[in-house]
Simulated assay, not measured.
Amino acid sequence: MVKKPEHLASANACAFQERSVVAAYRYRPPYPAETFAILADLVRGEPRTILDAGCGTGNIARRLVGHAERVDAVALSLSMIEEGKQLPEGDHPRLCWLHGRVEDVVLKPPYALITAGESIHWMDWQIVLPRFRALLRPGSFLAIIEQNISPSPWELLGEIVSRYRADGGYQPFDMVKAREQHCLLRLVGERKTAPIPFTQTIDECIESYHSRSGFSRERLGPTRAEAFTREAGAYLQQRSPDGMVSFQVSGVIQWGIPGTC
């Protein structure tokens, strides 16, 4: 298996344990509801148990509890779990929050489906992919979920992004390219949801950047964080005089057998 890019190293993943990142996470665009209908259809066999790996605040796990007998939601960040428990369905009796690294946390297989969102970027692929294969019931899948956001956060602010980001020159993660080059999974199927509109205030939009590893307030420091907020706000105000920023958001789901080509 090919080594993953350096900008996806665990040092950058640690940002998601920072309080400011957790607080800002709610301002990211949501997954379209169609995403969860697709995932529910991918559950194979009984019992209908799902593992959501690298769950964050449970944006996937919390929406799947109505389709499963149990959802195990694993996050490295205890702050993310604490936040997720306060959100809708966060205290659902079929949702089991687990604190630890998905590479070695104690789990209760077999699973009828394993899901992973953007968090799969940060995992140790050489450990988790063989583990996922062992955790899955025969005939079940790993589903990787991404968002297509238009305009993308990396384009919306132009060159402001590259001047301020603090994560060593991170490039947007290309799931298709990674799947082919790093053997993330043997693809069985892929679907893209219909786009949904998503609108937020300029302040909310800027706050969503602070939920990303390269823009955490802890990493930028108070002076640069304030300068980024001020410059990004002025730029967006010129583009959106009404104070609102609009996006189109689609979900992209790829599923297959993990760690094989």
Rank of each mutant, 00 (worst) to 15 (best):
A166T: 03
E146S: 14
E226V: 11
S152K: 04
P130D: 01
R217Y: 00
S152F: 03
E226L: 15
F132K: 11
A134F: 02
F141I: 06
R219V: 04
D174T: 01
I206W: 02
A134V: 08
T201C: 07
I202K: 02
P138M: 05
Y170N: 13
G221W: 07
S216V: 00
R133G: 09
R224P: 08
R219Q: 03
S216T: 09
S150T: 15
Q171F: 12
A178E: 10
S152T: 05
H210R: 15
T201P: 08
I206A: 02
R131N: 01
S150V: 14
T223Q: 15
E159L: 12
I196S: 03
L135E: 01
Y164L: 07
Q171L: 14
L157R: 06
F141T: 11
E190T: 12
F132R: 11
T193Y: 04
L156V: 09
T193Q: 01
D203T: 07
E146I: 03
S152L: 03
V176H: 13
L185R: 04
L185E: 00
W154E: 07
A134Y: 05
D203W: 02
A143C: 10
T199H: 02
L185V: 02
Q200L: 04
I206H: 00
H182Q: 12
G158T: 03
L220A: 05
R219N: 03
I196D: 07
T193I: 00
S208N: 00
P138H: 04
L157A: 02
P130N: 06
A178K: 10
P195V: 00
R212T: 09
I202P: 01
E159A: 14
P197C: 04
K192D: 13
S140I: 00
R137G: 06
E146M: 08
